[in-house]
Design a protein around this nucleic acid. Sequence first.
DNA 1: CCATTTAATCGTTTTATTGCGATAAAATTA
DNA 2: TAATTTTATCGCAATAAAACGATTAAATGG
Lengths: 110, 110
Amino acid sequence: MGLAKTEIFTDEQNQISVFAKAFGHPARVAILQHLFKIDTCFCGDLVKEIGLAQPTISQHLKELKYLGLIKGTVEGTSVCYCIDMDNWKEMKDIMTVFLGQDLLPKNECC
Amino acid sequence: MGLAKTEIFTDEQNQISVFAKAFGHPARVAILQHLFKIDTCFCGDLVKEIGLAQPTISQHLKELKYLGLIKGTVEGTSVCYCIDMDNWKEMKDIMTVFLGQDLLPKNECC
DNA sequence: CCATTTAATCGTTTTATTGCGATAAAATTA
DNA sequence: TAATTTTATCGCAATAAAACGATTAAATGG
């Protein structure tokens, strides 16, 4: 159906999957990496940096903004995007716990 | 188009997005969490644990196996699944670098 | 060999995602 | 005000993903 049955999963599981989905496209990974590297960035810069059309970049930015990972402030005719550090750290904490499950003691099986 | 233009991105960006996509569904998050908790697990156990049909679980297991995050060994009529620790750590290293970008010194902008 | 158990695969339906051309909106500049 | 710049939105086409019923495959037990 293309529709995940979110209601049968825990909030934590859904939250992890939502953040992971944001990183599930190389364009969004590239956008975030660029924002970290550059500190601040206009949408037009990203269009040049990444080789996708302007509406496509705008759409990816919208998704990242919806999740709170980035924020954009209008400056004249352009919009300045940057990482939302507080929300990034919150996301990172959640993902780090998930990724760090291998640190709990256990015996490998098969 | 529903088709990511992977060729315009770096190998690292594509790799991050591929792993992230694996965690982009709560069922796969739940499967991995359960495998970590239980050590070893049969497909049928996951069908009971998570509330999805057997073909659906089987499909999710196939994706996780394809990425190398889990491995399955046949035991009689059933298949025993568990985390592939080596590959998990490798994936974790890649994701940790990506998530840890906020640790590099920088000045917040907008 | 036949029934049973367990998991994988096939085929289909439904919804989501990607990408972009065309257009609109908003601010700036001439 | 008109032209320009920059970004957002709309609408569409193409592909991917999710879910599952039906079926197949593989091993075991009687």
